[in-house]
Computed example of a mutant assay.
Amino acid sequence: MEIQYGNPWALNWLWLALACLAMVIVAAVRTRMRLRNFASDNFMPRLLPPRHRLLVITRAMLMLMTFVLLTIALVDIRWGKVWREIPQKGIEVMFVLDVSRSMLAEDVTPNRLGRAKQQINDMLEVMGGDRIGLVVFAGEVRQVVPMTNHYDDFRRSLKEVDTSSIRRGGSRLGDAIRVATNGFLSKTLDHKAMVILTDGEDQESEPVKAAKQAYQDHGIRIFTVGLGNQQQGARIPSGRNADSSYLQYEGEQVWSKLDGKILQAVATETNGAFIPAETKQVDMASVYRQYVAKVDQQQFETAKINQYEARFQWFLGLALLSFLCDVFAGHWMPKPSGDPFHHEGKTR
């Protein structure tokens, strides 16, 4: 039988249960030692009758059982899969990632491409039921991930993307927008967003015109994230391992700068937003909530998910029962006899 653990870290609470049990044992031993200081063995059964000792042990075991059962409930053990229909609601988001050689520039850590992939992953962390897709571009364009709800598959594909994903060098941002536009499933004029992560370099592919057409014909709002130093720029490593040699043209090293004007124009024409990340760390979760998430959502088809059935209620119920037994056992606890020496005096 397959078992899934929702919160395995909760097992650490078992140490608290063992500590409580140890405290109970120590308290019982010290009580017995104190009584022996003024009572002989003949009077001990009167002070601590067998029934009393039995109930002390019983209550200690019930307390331990309560802690253990509560810990198991916190672990959230699940077994037995069931099919459930989950209504899906959200928007369609197409990520457009620049994989041209200029994205290897190291004015951000580890480089522009690495930072862009990190930013996409940061957005995925707060995206719920949105459909997502991935288009990469350089001198040509390729759709890597069609629109999907499978985020794990998307992450795996994103991880494998690098500058070798596109064989032809260059940067055709306008063509990327056109290909990404055709990748949306919804045919309505809303519920669609495009997130472009690039340094803004383009080789006369008319990205502003392509963006305007995408917004007018398909209602796609475009959000652009600009990466790279906008003033000084950075050199482009010539090898995949980013060693000490840099890309040269006609004997001069090539410097790549962020072109924010193109990205600003693309966002403006589509009622989107331009996020000048440049070389800074940007909270992409906040970017998603502030901009992308405000695109009107739509109801997707119901998804049928096969998931493990939670069983924590069983252990929580048993823990409550054990606790109640402990409480009732306290009421049944016999009181120790009165002062045995005073009683002996009355007998004499």
Results as ranks from 00 to 15, higher is better:
Pro334Val: 11
Asn229Gly: 14
Glu252Arg: 15
Lys346Gly: 07
Asp130Lys: 00
Leu62Asp: 01
Gln4Cys: 00
Lys159Pro: 00
Ile25Thr: 11
Ile91Arg: 15
Ile3Cys: 01
Gly128Met: 03
Asp162Arg: 04
Leu134Trp: 00
Glu106Lys: 10
Ala214Asn: 13
Val195Leu: 14
Leu316Gln: 00
Ile91Asn: 10
Met103Gly: 01
Phe137Lys: 04
Pro49Ala: 13
Arg240Cys: 03
Ile57Phe: 12
Gln264Met: 11
Gln203Gly: 08
Arg235Lys: 15
Lys159Tyr: 06
Gly90Ile: 12
Asp202Cys: 05
Tyr5Lys: 02
Ile305Cys: 02
Gly174Gln: 10
Glu106Gln: 13
Val96Met: 04
Asp41Lys: 12
Tyr246Ile: 05
Gly228Ser: 14
Glu201Arg: 15
Gly80Phe: 11
Gln203Met: 07
Ile91His: 11
Asn182Cys: 05
Gly233Thr: 05
Ala17Pro: 09
Val287Asp: 08
Arg142Cys: 04
Ala116Thr: 03
Asp76Ala: 12
Val161Thr: 12
Lys209Tyr: 03
Gln119Tyr: 09
Tyr215His: 12
Gln307Thr: 13
Gly170Glu: 13
Gln231Gly: 10
Trp314Ala: 09
Ile196Leu: 15
Leu320Val: 08
Ala60Phe: 03
Val136Ala: 11
Val295Trp: 03
Ala319Met: 09
Phe341Asp: 15
Gly272Cys: 13
Arg221Gln: 13
Met103Thr: 14
Ile275Leu: 14
Gln264Trp: 08
Asp76Phe: 04
Leu124Arg: 06
Leu321Phe: 12
Thr302Pro: 06
Gly133Phe: 00
Ile77Thr: 14
Val295Arg: 06
Tyr5His: 04
Cys325Tyr: 05
Ala273Leu: 12
Gln203Thr: 07
Ser186Tyr: 11
Ile262Phe: 09
Arg311Ser: 08
Cys325Thr: 06
Leu189Gln: 15
Tyr249Leu: 09
Gln118Ser: 11
Leu47Asn: 06
Ala273His: 15
Val144Tyr: 05
Gly139Met: 03
Val108Asn: 00
Tyr249Ser: 13
Asp175Tyr: 11
Ile166Gln: 01
Gly330Ile: 11
Asp296Pro: 07
Leu16Asp: 04
Ala277Tyr: 05
Leu35Cys: 03
Ala329Leu: 13
Lys261Cys: 05
Ala138Ser: 14
Leu316Lys: 01
Glu140Gly: 01
Val266Met: 10
Ala234Glu: 07
Ile86Tyr: 14
Asp283Gln: 10
Arg142Thr: 10
Arg178Thr: 15
Val254Pro: 05
Leu64Cys: 07
Arg156Gln: 10
Met194Pro: 02
Cys20Asp: 00
Asp326Trp: 10
Ala234Thr: 02
Thr188Tyr: 10
Glu278Thr: 09
Ile236Pro: 01
Ile305His: 13
Leu324Cys: 14
Val195Tyr: 12
Asp130Ser: 05
Met194Ile: 04
His342Met: 14
Arg172Val: 08
Ile120Gln: 02
Gly128Tyr: 03
Arg221Phe: 07
Leu35Gln: 03
Glu92Trp: 05
Val208Phe: 01
Ser245Ala: 13
Phe184His: 10
Tyr291Ile: 04
Phe300Thr: 06
Gln248Asn: 08
Asp202Tyr: 01
Ile132Thr: 07
Thr109Glu: 10
Gln143Tyr: 02
Val136Phe: 04
Ser322Arg: 10
Val225Lys: 08
Arg155Ser: 07
Phe312Asp: 07
Leu74Val: 02
Asp243Tyr: 07
Leu16Pro: 04
His52Arg: 15
Val141Ile: 14
Ala105Pro: 01
Thr181Met: 12
Ala285Tyr: 00
Leu134Asn: 03
Val136Ile: 12
Gly272Ser: 13
Gln313Met: 09
